[in-house]
Simulated scan of single mutants.
Amino acid sequence: MQPKVNQILYLQVASADEEASKINYKARIADYREQDLLIEVPINEENGKLKKLYLGDELSAYFLNENGVKHYFNSHVLGFREDVIKLISIRKPDPDQVTKVQRRSFFRVPAELELAVKLPDQTRFLAYTDDVGGGGISFLADGKWQVKEGETLECWMLLSYKNGSLDHSGFVSEVVRVEKLESGRIQVMCKFAQINDSERQRIIRYCFERQLDFRNR
């Protein structure tokens, strides 16, 4: 099931501040397009204030069907459009990403980071991430590598921070989906299967730095 024009979306916005991430907002869906939804500026349900969103902001959202059942999905801000009123473009969820069970996850940011990957058969190769978050990554690789959905990969990712320092983060990820691109390369979407908290925090630090970069452009 997909949201519809004029329905109300109920939102929470990912934030480093835990209390801020719990604030509830609502916004009307103004338009439904092939790749995105256009929504009005969200309003804080408690105090009625408008919420300014930034490019790359991650959202946890739900809408109600005609029977009052909540349908949840995760999204992020793609851009903005000035119409009679200001509208915000957010990524439209795939039908299989809409669920009746809330599945909040860490936000992701676009990032091209060097990634060393080891397959279950011990094959090793280098790839580059497409996006990165505290809950998982996606990466691009040569189509010759036999990466399969459901298998686990050992990964080592090179993180570069704004102060010029470099760090490595190691983790085990589970392949959620593999897509073959027209270029012949593959895009591999993964969620973290085994990662310790310090590794995750390094990745989240990197993500927030990247999010600030988007906001300052």
Rank of each mutant, 00 (worst) to 15 (best):
V117S: 02
L55P: 06
Q2N: 01
I85S: 03
F107P: 04
I29C: 07
L38K: 05
P120A: 12
S60N: 14
R124Y: 07
P3T: 06
F106M: 05
E199V: 15
V175F: 03
E209T: 11
A27N: 08
R108F: 07
Q35T: 09
D36L: 13
V178I: 07
V175A: 02
V117D: 02
N216S: 14
V175E: 01
N65Y: 04
D36P: 02
S21P: 09
N67D: 07
F63V: 12
A61T: 13
C155N: 14
L64H: 08
G68N: 04
A27H: 08
R91Y: 01
V69F: 04
D31I: 09
G133L: 13
E112F: 08
L140R: 08
A127Y: 05
F125N: 03
V5P: 03
F107L: 10
L158G: 10
D167Q: 09
Y10P: 02
A30W: 04
N47R: 00
L87C: 04
E66S: 08
L113G: 03
T123M: 10
E182V: 11
K180T: 14
S183N: 07
N163D: 13
R217Q: 14
L212M: 15
Y72T: 11
F214H: 14
V84M: 01
N216C: 13
E66Y: 06
L140S: 06
L212V: 15
R104W: 03
V13W: 03
N216L: 15
D131V: 10
R103V: 13
A27E: 08
F125W: 07
Q122V: 15
S105E: 05
K86I: 03
R103N: 10
E82N: 01
L9E: 00
D130G: 11
I8A: 02
D121A: 10
E179W: 07
L78V: 03
E112G: 07
M1N: 00
K148P: 11
R104S: 05
M157I: 15
R200F: 09
S198I: 15
D17P: 06
A30T: 13
L64R: 11
K4M: 11
M1V: 07
Y32E: 12
I39L: 02
L11E: 03
V147D: 04
K22W: 07
V117Q: 02
R185E: 12
K52F: 02
T129H: 02
G164W: 06
S183T: 14
E209P: 09
E114S: 08
Y206H: 14
D17C: 10
K162Y: 11
F139V: 14
D197V: 15
V13H: 02
L87S: 01
L64E: 13
I43E: 01
Y54W: 06
F208A: 06
Y62Q: 08
G164S: 05
K52I: 11
S173C: 11
V69M: 08
D121P: 11
L9G: 00
S21K: 12
A61Y: 10
S15A: 01
D96H: 03
L37G: 05
F63H: 09
E179H: 10
K162Q: 15
E66T: 11
Y206K: 14
K86E: 01
S169R: 00
D83S: 03
V41P: 00
E182H: 04
R217N: 12
K180S: 10
K26I: 15
G133T: 13
C190E: 11
S15V: 04
A30M: 12
R104T: 09
S21Y: 07
I90Q: 00
A111W: 06
Q194C: 12
S165T: 12
K118R: 13
